[in-house]
């Protein structure tokens, strides 16, 4: 079910403002691709354009092409709702639904997709997804308790379970560990390693060690100057990015000599 993504000449606008310019990249199936770069350089914007979530902001639109296994995401015939059902997303802050139990949180996406589900089928999905998110052992005795009662790290894994419950083709993660402590972060990173075998994962991170630890390929985004659109500076295999990048700006950013 994992699929590759091709981005070609992608320009992303917020109204008239060009936020990101000329992005080209190929994201491999069953691999982890990390986006790094300074704040405001557009990496989250690019990530959100991969499942058309940026369109939630009024006036946001794109030019260029994004294809998932050859299927264009921005064809006029494509419904953004259908895109989002196939490309899951995990956000910066854990956002389980406050009024739902752990069980119902996991099933939230499935309930949208198919109205009727047998109890055993639902139980299976919940168990499989929570196991997939390494959360099953911690919550299996309190599935009917509210999701908000979990710790931050557990909540984030619950959100991952919710995202993978619908078996998406791609999983997008927008700084999934930035609100978590190191132990929870480590748990999520281990999980990303495991999920890689089934899913195509794209992760935005501010933590370069994290990018080096979890990703196979890395894209470095930067701004030419304040007020200018962001662009993709370099896209390479992660070991090469961190050892011997092609671009001087990448090296300056990675080695902390940025400015």
């Amino acid at each position: 079910m994992a699929k590759s993504i091709d981005v070609s000449d992608l320009d992303i606008y917020y109204g008239d403002f060009l936020a990101v310019e000329g992005v080209n990249m190929h994201i491999k199936a069953r691999s982890v691709t990390a986006f790094i770069g300074p704040s405001g350089c557009g990496k989250s914007t690019v990530l959100r354009s991969l499942n058309r979530m940026h369109e939630v902001i009024p006036g946001a639109h794109v030019q260029g092409k994004v294809t998932v296994d050859g299927q264009s995401l921005y064809d006029s015939a494509v419904d953004p709702v259908a895109v989002r059902r196939q490309i899951g997303m995990v956000f910066q802050r854990p956002n389980p639904f406050p009024t739902m139990s752990i069980y119902e949180n996991v099933l939230a996406g499935n309930r949208l997709n198919s109205k009727k589900m047998k109890k055993t089928e639902a139980d299976d999905i919940v168990e499989r997804s929570l196991k997939g998110a390494n959360l099953w052992n911690e919550v299996k005795d309190r599935l009917d308790k509210p999701g908000m009662g979990l710790s931050g790290g557990q909540q984030q894994r619950l959100c991952i379970a919710r995202a993978i419950a619908v078996e998406p083709q791609v999983l997008l993660m927008d700084e999934p560990c930035s609100a978590l402590d190191p132990i929870s972060t480590s748990a999520i990173e281990d999980l990303i390693h495991e999920l890689k075998s089934d899913y195509t994962i794209v992760i935005v991170t501010h933590n370069m060690q994290q990018a080096a630890r979890v990703s196979d390929e890395t894209g470095f985004f930067n701004l030419k100057a304040a007020g200018q659109p962001g662009h993709l500076v370099e896209f390479n295999a992660t070991p090469k990015m961190f050892a011997n990048p092609d671009n001087e700006a990448t090296e300056a950013y990675i080695s902390g000599r940025f400015g």
Partner: peptide, 25 residues
């Protein structure tokens, strides 16, 4: 916003998002 985005990212239509995130809140 995080609640609304959570619903939309799961592939909720606007009305489903309202039922899932806005009305319970």
């Amino acid at each position: 916003t995080t609640q609304q985005e959570a619903a939309l990212a799961l592939g909720a239509t606007r009305w489903e998002m309202i039922r899932m995130a806005v009305l319970p809140y």
